[in-house]
Amino acid sequence: MDSEQPTPPHKGRHRAHNRPARPHAVLLRLSDEEKTAIDVAAEAVALTPTGYAAKAAVAAASAGQASSEATGDLRELQHELFAARRAVVMFGNNVNQAAAAFNATGQLPDWAADAVRLCAAAVARLDEVISLIDRRLR
């Protein structure tokens, strides 16, 4: 008689192992529902639950770094927009002063042409920032 026991089916393939082995281990404590969710997800992609959890953790950590870089980019754009806003507010003040001077004397102040040139430069820079945001959103 043949006394061989049938081999249990594999629940998932093993990830490629590095040699020497990876030096760090992380212990996860999961509820029954969380463990079941990982088991189901791992089986769906033919990985062991440990392999699946490791890949998911590394992917989440990498996404966090990308998110941090994106936040830095947004902060840079925010500073540009603040600078453009400041320039527009300053131009508004210049227009009010120029209008007051014109009403009083009938002539525009000498500095009015410089103020208009600076405003045009601020609007051009604002257009660049808007284009940059548009390109990044595509």
Rank of each mutant, 00 (worst) to 15 (best):
D2M: 06
D2N: 15
D2F: 01
D2W: 00
S3K: 07
S3I: 12
S3P: 04
S3L: 10
S3R: 01
S3D: 14
E4D: 00
E4P: 12
Q5S: 00
Q5G: 10
Q5M: 03
Q5W: 02
P6F: 13
P6C: 09
P6G: 12
P6W: 05
T7P: 05
T7F: 11
T7W: 00
T7Y: 01
P8E: 09
P8R: 06
P8I: 05
P8N: 09
P9C: 08
P9R: 07
P9W: 09
P9S: 03
P9T: 01
H10G: 12
H10S: 01
K11T: 02
K11V: 00
K11I: 05
G12V: 13
G12Q: 04
G12T: 04
R13T: 04
R13S: 15
R15I: 10
R15H: 07
R15L: 15
A16E: 03
A16K: 10
A16G: 02
H17T: 12
H17G: 12
H17P: 08
N18R: 11
N18F: 13
N18D: 06
R19D: 05
R19A: 09
R19L: 12
R19C: 00
P20S: 10
P20V: 12
A21E: 14
A21L: 13
A21M: 09
A21W: 08
A21N: 01
R22P: 08
P23I: 06
P23E: 03
P23F: 11
P23T: 01
P23Q: 13
H24M: 11
H24N: 13
H24A: 08
H24L: 15
A25K: 14
A25V: 10
A25T: 15
V26R: 00
V26D: 07
V26C: 14
L27E: 14
L27T: 15
L27S: 05
L28E: 10
L28D: 02
L28K: 06
L28P: 04
L28A: 07
L28Q: 04
R29T: 13
R29F: 06
R29I: 03
L30G: 00
L30N: 14
L30Q: 10
L30W: 08
L30F: 09
S31F: 08
S31A: 06
S31K: 03
S31D: 11
D32L: 03
D32W: 04
D32A: 11
E33H: 02
E33S: 12
E33G: 05
E33D: 02
E34N: 14
K35Y: 09
K35I: 03
K35L: 00
K35G: 06
K35R: 12
T36I: 13
T36G: 09
T36C: 08
T36P: 01
T36K: 14
T36Y: 11
T36M: 03
T36W: 06
A37P: 10
A37D: 07
A37W: 06
A37Y: 02
I38A: 15
I38F: 15
I38Y: 00
I38R: 11
I38N: 04
